[in-house]
Design a binder for these strands. Structure first.
Lengths: 107, 107
DNA sequence: GCAATATTTAACAAATATGTTAAATACAAG
DNA sequence: CTTGTATTTAACATATTTGTTAAATATTGC
C-alpha cells in the first residue's frame, strides 16, 4: 500500500519518468548514457537514479567503473495489480459514461 | 504522457492516495466526510482535493453548501493503459525471473 | 603508482509542497 | 436579513525537492 505511494512518487517527476521509459525501451544502460539524454547535470541524474533505486523501480549492476541500470519489472507489475484490483470500480464507471454518451447520440 | 506524470504526482501523497481509495470504495462523498476521516485540518484536505481535481483524478459536484467528490474512472484507466502498453517489457522480465528461480530450485 | 574515466556525495541556493489558523464565501433555515 | 453550517481561499512557517558546482571515490590502463 505505502509501497505503491513510493512508486508513484518515483514516477511523479518528468526526469525520472523519462529515465524509466528509456530503460524499458533500450534495456540496461550505464548512468553516463542516461545523463547524455537529459538536459541536466550528471549529479542530478545520479540522484534521480538513487531515488528510483530506493523506490525499487530500478536496479543497479556494477561493471568496472560503470553503473548499469535497468527497470525492475516487479514495480510495474505492482501498479498493474493495483489497477486490476480497482478495475471493478473504474470499469463500471466508464461503461456508465459510455452508455450516457450513446444515449445522447440517440437524441 | 505528461498527463500521466500529473496523475502519478496526484497519487504520490499519502493523504491524496487515501482520499482516492475512500472515494472508490465508498463512492461519492462530501468534503466534510473526507475531512472527518483524516488527521489533518479541513483546509488541508480541501487543498488536496483541489490538486486531485486539477489532475483530473476526481470531480466535484455541488449540492447546496456541500461539495460532493468522486473519482473519475478515466484517470485510473490511463494508468491501466500505460501498464498494458509496457506489459511486453515487464511481463517478459518477470517470466525470466521466474525461470531463474525455478532453475535455482532444481539445483 | 599515476593519470584518465565514470559516477556519486557534499554543500548550498532556489523553488515547491504541505500544514496551520484566520478570514472569506455561499447556501439554508428560521 | 441574520445566524449557522460547509467549504474554500489567504497568509504564513517549515520541510522537502531539485538543480548547480566542487570534491570525493573507485576502477582501468599504462
Amino acid at each position: 500500500m505505502t509501497n505503491l505511494i513510493t512508486t508513484f512518487s518515483a514516477l511523479a517527476d518528468e526526469t525520472r519518468f523519462y529515465l524509466v521509459e528509456q530503460l524499458m525501451t533500450q534495456g540496461e544502460l550505464p548512468a553516463g548514457d542516461l545523463v547524455a539524454q537529459r538536459p541536466i547535470s550528471g549529479p542530478a541524474v545520479s540522484r534521480h537514479l538513487k531515488i528510483l533505486r530506493q523506490a525499487g523501480v530500478v536496479q543497479q549492476r556494477i561493471d568496472g567503473t560503470r553503473r548499469l541500470y535497468s527497470v525492475r519489472p516487479e514495480s510495474l507489475k505492482a501498479i498493474s495489480d493495483w489497477t486490476i484490483e480497482k478495475r471493478a470500480f473504474w470499469q463500471a464507471g466508464l461503461d456508465r459514461l459510455e452508455t450516457l454518451l450513446d444515449e445522447e447520440q440517440n437524441t
